[in-house]
Design a protein around this nucleic acid. Structure first.
Lengths: 235, 235
DNA sequence: TTTTTTTAATGATAAATGTCATTTTATTAA
DNA sequence: TTAATAAAATGACATTTATCATTAAAAAAA
């Protein structure tokens, strides 16, 4: 799974823009470049394993991942997604706890592994880097609060409608207008927090009501306003 | 609501032990002491308001608080609790976002207000302080993931059983063995994510089954093992 | 391609939970 | 203390959602 992108410098990395690494100096970026390992994961491959203690973080260069936890009777719960520019496994490393969730590639994914030591060296060196990490963690914590409120108070139908909008804003759409992420009905169910059959039925209902267009795993949102209303989405 | 504890030094503060402030030097603690304001909140008083931009954080010295978000049709969702030693509002300050939730005192609460400026000054000065803040944020993020999974996968009965155990481990018990926190049935419902009536019925059921003893708002756990089993709690 | 396996769809039914209405009991304020 | 208010308890019922069984369709592998 290693690949020869290792020699690519973080300094020229286009995906770096707007990420936590963007506040580092050229010298600090060079430290990462000198110590990172570039890796490719195939679709379905587990990148990090719940319960393990990671030795560093991955900086996601290209691809999409799901972060998921084991729930009751082995049922998967999808907690969030990751895409280009995201840091994988930062929560466990920074809290000095085992991974609270696994991370799995949803498609071929390229990422650079940054070892623990260099990560911490940069935290020591750069308060603004620390600040960026805190920002990400605290932002994600706010998101988690929203998810908690939705799970606790919304119906399955509302959550599904909202989730479709969220998937679109997270991953965007392909040239033919479909959500640019391929998930099984089961995965959508594991994200929304419901039974697979319920997800299937509700998606069919949305299709029937002309809110979305379905073609296998391809989902196209048609009536975003109605979906937002149905999902009690206000922002 | 201001009080004359302002002149108390953080250096001698007993509640500081084991908190994020514990890694600061005496000089750094003095910086806080010189700039903090000590405040008392009465039961039911809102300490921070969802949507506002806080000018600092509160360090909770004594008391108990709930962190709660507005949900569908104004329904309150309790996200987490705070107690002695906790920092209130750190998420919003560190992510530079408005407060994603309100914080309300559940009983008379004493807290010290640390202004934004001094907080950031300490982050600049002390990588280990930054590290502590990250640890807290990342730990809370892990907790949030657990809560999400529970809300998505457990039944109301399971969640209530687990929550009772969680309340005991968070707040402990009084001398007569009751949970050392007073919540209305509605608040418990807003924590568990269910209707107040359902909470009332299930608590009565637990009482009927001799898992707990109820006396108004006083709740005593009797059969912790059975509660854990009923709640699918494994740790 | 053809076969095999996985995923999706659908119906029937059971179970869990929410909602509304009402009464009883606590708690708070006068 | 009493009156006023809020919270808790309970019943009846509607609705949502899960579960199980089965078939159809789509992906993946041979």
């Amino acid at each position: 799974m290693e690949c020869n992108d290792s020699n690519l410098s973080c300094l020229n990395c286009k995906e770096r823009e707007g990420t936590v690494l963007d506040v580092l100096t050229d010298k600090q970026l060079q430290l990462i470049t000198d110590n990172k390992t570039c890796v490719v994961f195939k679709k379905g491959q587990i990148i990090m394993h719940e319960g393990n203690n990671p030795n560093g973080v991955y900086c996601l260069k290209h691809g999409k991942c799901k972060t998921h936890k084991l729930g009751i009777e082995g049922k998967e719960q999808i907690i969030r997604f990751a895409k280009s520019g995201d840091l994988l496994g930062y929560r466990a490393i920074l809290s000095d706890e085992p991974l609270s969730a696994s991370i799995t590639a949803l498609e071929e994914t390229r990422a650079c592994f940054i070892p623990r030591q260099e990560l911490f060296e940069l935290i020591e060196q750069s308060p603004s880097f620390s600040m960026q990490l805190m920002k990400v963690a605290c932002h994600d914590l706010g998101e988690a609060g929203r998810i908690i409120t939705n799970l606790a108070q919304k119906t399955v139908r509302e959550r599904l409608a909202e989730m479709l909008l969220l998937l679109e804003s997270t991953f965007g759409v392909t040239s033919d207008g479909n959500l640019d992420v391929s998930l099984t009905r089961e995965e959508i169910a594991n994200l929304v927090g419901t039974a697979t059959e319920s997800t299937i039925r509700l998606l069919s209902e949305f299709k029937e009501d002309k809110l979305i267009v379905l073609k296998g795993r391809k989902i196209k949102l048609v009536e975003r306003g109605k979906l937002a209303k149905l999902g009690n989405v206000f922002d």
